[in-house]
Amino acid sequence: MNFRQAVKQPLILDGAMATELEKRGVDTNSELWSARALLTDPNAVYAVHYSYFAAGADVAITNTYQANVPAFEKIGLTAAASKALIAKAVQVAQQARTDYLVASDNARDLYVAGSVGPYGAYLADGSEYTGAYQLDRKAYQVFHYPRIAQLVASGVDVLAIETQPNFAEIQAVVALLQEEFPQQTAWVSLSIKDAQTLCDGTPLAEVVTYLNQQPQVVALGVNCTALTNVTAALQTLQPLTDKPLLVYPNSGEEYDPSDKTWHMQKNTPQFSELVPKWQATGAQLIGGCCRTTPGDIEQISQILR
C-alpha cells in the first residue's frame, strides 16, 4: 500500500544511523556527520538499514539528514557527484529492504523515507536545536530543492522533513513541495523547545494549524528530543490535529552542541515503559533518533505487534 494509506495503522520507524556506523568503525566526526559514510563506506550504511529492518522497523530513513549539495560542494565535490551520493543513500536503503524481505520471507510492507534535515544541520553548529537562523523563503527553497528533487527521483516512499526548528523554513519547504512536487507525500517532524513551543519560539498550535491545511503532509510530530519530553508534546499535539502523530526521540543521553558530545542522564526510562503511554496519547508512528539502537527498535516492535 502507499504511504498515505500506511500511516492509518501503527508503523515502526528505525533508529540512529551515526551511532550504529560508529559501532562499525566508521568515523562520523565531521561537518558531514553520518553522511560522510556515503563516501567512505556505503556498505556500512546498508548494514545499518538492514539491522533495523531485522529489528522490526517498517520504515528506513535515508542517511541524507546532513547530505545536501552545498555540504558536499564544501568538501570539493561537484553538484553532479553530490546528487549521485544522495541517490546512493536511497539505493542502499532500498537494497537493504529488498534483501531483508528475501532473506526473511516476510510479507509485511516496508518503506523508505527520504530524510530532509533543516538548514541548521548544514550549519553544523547545533542550530537545529535553536532555529536561530534566518533566510528568506526563496533562499530556503534554493537550499532544499536539489536534495528533495534527487530523493523524489530516486523513488522514496515519503519525505521525512525532520528535526525542523524554524517555522519560516517549514513553510518554505512545504510550499516547495506544492510548487515542484505536488504528488509527493511527506511527514513533518518538529524540533521543540518545550511541549508547547517550536525551538524558534513559535507556538506549536500555530505550526500545527498550518500543517493541518497541507494535504501533502500525511503525518506530523516530534523527533530528536529527550524521551521524557514526548508524552507532554503529544498531549499538546493530539487535540490540535486529525493527522497521524509520530515520535522518534533520542535515547536517554542528552547532546551538548558546544563540544558535540552526548551525556547519559540518570534514571532515564526505557522505550518499553514509555511506548504504551505514547500510543495512548495518539502516537501512530514510533521510532528512535540519536543514540538509539536496533535493540530499542526491537522493544518498540514487541509492544506494537
Results as ranks from 00 to 15, higher is better:
T98I: 05
D99K: 09
D105S: 14
P118V: 09
Y119G: 05
A96M: 15
A93F: 12
Y119R: 05
A107E: 15
E128S: 09
A121H: 00
L110G: 01
G126V: 03
V116Y: 04
Y133D: 02
L101G: 11
N106Q: 12
L123W: 04
L123V: 06
S104L: 12
Y122F: 09
A103G: 11
A132I: 09
Y122E: 06
V112A: 10
L123Y: 08
G126Y: 07
L123M: 04
D99V: 01
V102K: 15
A113S: 13
P118Y: 05
R97F: 02
T98N: 12
Y133G: 08
A107S: 15
G131W: 07
Q91A: 15
A89N: 13
A87R: 15
V90H: 07
Y119P: 00
K88L: 15
G117F: 07
A87I: 07
D109A: 14
V90I: 02
A113H: 11
D109E: 15
A89R: 13
D105F: 11
S115Y: 05
A89V: 14
T130G: 04
Y122G: 01
Q95D: 07
L110F: 10
A103F: 11
S127W: 01
I86V: 12
V90L: 05
Y122C: 09
R108E: 02
G120E: 00
V112Y: 10
D109H: 14
D99W: 03
K88W: 05
S115Q: 06
A93H: 14
A96R: 15
Y129H: 11
L85G: 08
A124F: 11
A121C: 10
S115W: 05
A87H: 14
G114D: 05
G126H: 10
L85E: 10
L85A: 03
T130I: 11
R108I: 10
Y119V: 10
L85Q: 10
A96P: 14
A124M: 03
S127H: 03
V112F: 07
Q94M: 11
D125R: 10
D99M: 07
Q91T: 14
L85T: 01
A124Q: 08
L123S: 00
V90F: 02
Y133I: 05
G131S: 07
G120S: 08
P118W: 04
V116A: 09
G117W: 07
